[in-house]
Design a protein around this nucleic acid. Structure first.
Lengths: 343, 343
DNA sequence: CTGAAAGCGCTAACAC
DNA sequence: GTGTTAGCGCTTTCAG
């Protein structure tokens, strides 16, 4: 493995000069620089980032901390899309990514800041972390620059990226109202997600804006689980046959509601309209296809990295970024579209 | 940021002793060790892996090199599953993961071994790399320990993990033959994937074993693309109406064939049986649901890491690992199942 | 424009 | 058992 020492020796200069030449400093003779660059190439030199990181006290790596990257998370590949966006931005800006996947067992062994300090990451992005997660407190307390996805906390070293979940939910419910629905239930996610609170808020606001009553017993939690949502919606629909539309805080849960509707023999959308949230891949493959609120999750990851690196490089003014959502109308709410497709 | 020096100072010992105590060496007084460990905790010490890596010449990181982690790869989340398996194994064994995602443009800037040498990864796992990819040669030539996914190359420093693709394809075609099919076409993947060659081989062997002719014009490439497979199968089915079954080298392509069948008004499976490969999530959500050859991709990633770390730690005898596949029968080939479900 | 020297935090001979 | 010393590969004062 060739080092700058080797280059210095064959070039007949000092290591200082080699370092300066290779790092593009101005105060080095153009000829010397060219010579050094040539030799570096000949010797297949690669800088040792460990050594550089050690002395510079920055590693040019950022840590992505995700939770629950297990078999079940394959269905909604939220994490993968975040990762994909993060990766894109990070590599554009010359950083590398180290992945920390936390599980409840591993969490006890090593704390968040230990993880980050050991690897000397310059900053971290947290995704899929619940609001009661012990890591979260650490973030706020530690002074490691950090961007949260979907958790709105801000400080000198902490920023966040999210979508406008209140507005997103509003769009969904408004769409149902426009289709003539008056009895609209919500299957929400669990309380440990900030987005759940937001989407519930949007649901309520949309109803109120249309002078429709908010009925607390039409608000149930599906815990972001397909099965759980199926169960809960089954109960709900049995108990309140007057419900004609359900807004779900995730597509996965909407899929569960679709199953419940099938069990009850309720045709979607003629007897029951269903709208999801996320626009996961399955939403356009289910039967019927699923109307949903699309969020650009890859962009979420991209913007998170962007914000973080801006913070690291002192270019940041803002500490937050809120992305937009889009209503995608498909068969599960649109009677006309549905019947067109059937024939 | 506290260092062993700080600990040494407050403990009144030398840094050597601290280092030894913290790393569990035997030749240190138990009392001294306890004292040092306590102080380390008090001072919230985390070892600096950069410094350690520099001196030990191993970083305890492994690099995962994947290609094309873009928007399109969300559909079959092969990469994510590999990543998930890799991550699981790696964290069990005390390594960290750094992700290198290559794109054609970035490839020109930095070579594979540069990437690995700069970050001083102890070893690398390559997934989704085409067999004509320039990176591949580098691997074989560089002396960086490396495990390939789905490319069977072996050397002192190179191992691989794959599934038995010949057998997998055989299972698929055998299943079709057992259903009474005699005219079976194949939509294969592109030639830059080793698995394509293997699956074609399995297809041919299964036909021959049943004394069925292999017709070269029934072998077409869908290039692992849904759209391309749709086009190609459309042509194929128009030209050869006698074809009653199609084996696809990926589920995504099978989905394309399903669309083609719909366009031609060929009911699946009564007029045309379709079988895929991979068992992606969509396979159980499509209409009709897709019979397929399942491979455990998470396990693929897990075993790849396992093999690599064994190699790194000198525990390896073998340089290869071949996993099994499983036939999953769903509606797209099973007339009985299909009709049952319809009523 | 270039070089000598110090030091980042850690480990590993080698002494005692 | 413990300390002294050197050095991993690099950047960065400070002199010249």
């Amino acid at each position: 493995m060739t080092t700058i020492k080797d280059i210095a020796k064959t070039a007949g200069v000092s290591v200082t000069t080699v370092s300066r030449a290779l790092n593009g400093y101005s105060d080095v003779n153009e000829k010397t620089r060219q010579k050094i660059i040539n030799i570096a190439e000949d010797l297949k030199y690669s800088p040792n980032t460990l050594a550089r990181g050690l002395v510079m006290n920055r590693s040019k790596t950022i840590g992505l901390l995700v939770s629950g990257m297990d078999r079940s998370s394959v269905k909604d590949n939220f994490t993968y899309q975040v990762l994909s966006g993060v990766n894109e931005c990070i590599s554009e800006r010359g950083y590398d990514l180290v992945l920390f996947s936390t599980t409840s067992t591993k969490q006890r062994e090593k704390t968040y800041s230990q993880l980050c300090r050991e690897r000397r990451v310059d900053g971290a992005i947290l995704s899929g972390i619940k609001i009661d997660d012990p890591y979260l407190n650490e973030v706020v307390e530690s002074n490691i620059p950090c961007v949260l996805i979907d958790i709105p906390i801000q400080s000198e070293t902490v920023g966040f990226v999210t979508t406008d979940n209140v507005l997103g939910a509003k769009k969904a419910v408004r769409h149902l109202i426009e289709q003539g629905h008056k009895n609209i239930a919500i299957i929400n996610g669990h309380d440990q997600a900030f987005v759940s609170k937001q989407r519930l808020k949007g649901y309520k606001e949309a109803l109120e804006a249309a002078n429709l009553p908010v009925k607390e017993y039409w608000i149930v939690s599906g815990e972001f689980s397909e099965d759980r949502a199926q169960e809960k919606s089954l109960e709900l629909l049995k108990q309140f046959p007057e419900i004609t539309a359900i807004f779900c805080a995730s597509d996965l849960m909407a899929l569960g509601v679709l199953k419940a509707a099938k069990i009850l023999g309720l045709e979607v959308p003629s007897k029951l309209s269903v709208i999801g949230y996320d626009n996961i891949l399955l939403a356009s493959y289910s039967t019927p296809t699923l109307t949903t609120i699309a969020q650009d999750i890859i962009e979420l990851g991209y913007q998170a990295s962007h914000l973080l690196i801006d913070m690291l490089e002192g270019e940041s003014n803002s500490r937050e970024c809120i992305l937009d959502t889009e209503l995608i109308i498909r068969e599960s709410t649109d009677s006309k579209q549905r019947s067109l497709i059937k024939e």
